[in-house]
Amino acid sequence: MSNTFHDPSTSDQPYKDPTPLPESIPRVQELGTTSAYLKSAAFFLGAHCKEFNEDFMLCKAEDRDPAHCLKEGRRVTRCATDLITKMRENCLKDFDLHAACLEKNNHEYYACRKPERSLNKCMFEKLGLTKTIPGSPEGKTPIHLVEKPVFTTIQK
């Protein structure tokens, strides 16, 4: 333990966590995915990991203590890792394109409909997952399927 800051990238030793989790807690690899990819995958994450997510949130509603829901939390992370791995295996090109587009356009979905549609198509064909927005008005085209929306980017 020292109080000076050592930049890990310039260190000659690999970074070692001085205070790791106790041994009694099973290890789980953190997802480590960046925000644009998470935003791109959010709806598939909701569809693919619905049970684990709901289980975790119900557990959190029971008790907000971080120690209370570690097990459910590990399941959530494992499921998310599983989905991201599958997406990378099956739709890497579309996934990359959509994430790059989001990164370029202030993380706005409406600016990236074209890559989003190809990603959605690929996800449905390969993994059978569809994007649904809960609470959308019945009988109307969901916003991500509207052909000529009012809100578009100024530059095409």
Partner: peptide, 12 residues
């Protein structure tokens, strides 16, 4: 949809 994932990581 991202809340459980981020919350789980933060909790750990």
């Amino acid at each position: 949809y991202l809340v459980p994932l981020l919350l789980a990581e933060g909790d750990r």
